[in-house]
């Protein structure tokens, strides 16, 4: 079956995570093809890893003040600030057997697609296991992975034009977290595409699509009505609920 590639669209935080889950269910039951989607967050949002404590990681008052939404992911990993203008998020959703069984190798493969896309933009990047991509020692991309019901999901972010000040006003980054990294400050941790190449967001998306689809049979597609309906249901049942978002 051909891969489906869904072009960049904006959704809110709850719907973005619900779409990943709804697509996963449809892929798992064979009703939807393996899917690559690119998307943004409107309004800007923070997503936290499924094992994180929301109060430890997120400045809730700053989020309220700045109109930044918050959602807990189904994947592990760290808290991410998804700026409406400044980043691109991707998801790869496929039956487990289409992806390497070894978790690290699967990260390497998909993060390798991002490194290749950056290479097309003449930006040299390296994968730092488990799940980070760095340019000149600074993080430009992070990803997280889960496997449920025979379905593989990896989603991640690529920073396009980020203001570290804004990012670190909504995220609480304690000193312990960076204690093993040789960096002077939180702001030194991250970088974004525009710092390294003058390139439009559309061109970045074009290079990402080129790299993600290399060697694959694919076609451009949209979400099915069933996926949209199920995603809306998951927003109501899970992703908008304090019982989920504040569960840790």
């Amino acid at each position: 079956m051909k891969w489906r590639v869904v072009d960049f669209e904006y959704w809110n935080a709850w719907m973005n995570m619900a779409l990943d889950e709804a697509i996963g269910e449809a892929v798992g039951s064979g009703r939807s093809p393996s899917t690559i989607r690119f998307y943004g967050w409107n309004p800007s949002a923070v997503s936290i890893g499924c094992f994180q404590s929301i109060k430890d990681e997120v400045d809730l008052e700053a989020c309220r003040r700045m109109g930044v939404d918050i959602v807990r992911r189904r994947t592990g990993g760290g808290a991410v600030y998804h700026d409406r203008e400044g980043e691109i998020t991707y998801s790869v959703i496929a039956p487990e057997e289409m992806v390497q069984k070894d978790i690290n190798k699967a990260y390497e493969t998909i993060c390798g697609w991002i490194v290749d896309a950056l290479d097309l933009m003449e930006i040299t990047a390296n994968i730092i296991p488990i799940n980070d991509i760095l340019v000149e020692g600074r993080k430009i991309s992070g990803s997280a992975q889960t496997r449920r019901g025979g379905v593989f999901l990896q989603h991640g972010t690529l920073l396009y034009n980020i203001s570290p000040g804004k990012m670190f006003s909504v995220l609480k980054v304690g000193c312990t977290k960076i204690s093993d990294k040789n960096i002077a400050s939180f702001e030194d941790r991250v970088t974004s595409i525009l710092r390294h190449a003058k390139i439009s967001k559309d061109k970045v998306l074009q290079e990402l699509r080129r790299s993600f689809t290399k060697g694959k049979e694919w076609e451009a597609g949209v979400y099915t009505e069933e996926e949209r309906r199920r995603a809306r249901q998951l927003v109501v049942e899970r992703y908008s609920k304090d019982e989920w978002n504040f569960s840790r």
């Binding site: 890893g49 994180q52 990993g77 997280a144």
Partner: peptide, 15 residues
């Protein structure tokens, strides 16, 4: 005991 952080556990319910 509650354990939190930016680690990964597969499957997630294992925590």
């Amino acid at each position: 005991v509650q354990i939190t952080g930016d680690f990964f556990i597969h499957p997630e319910e294992g925590l």
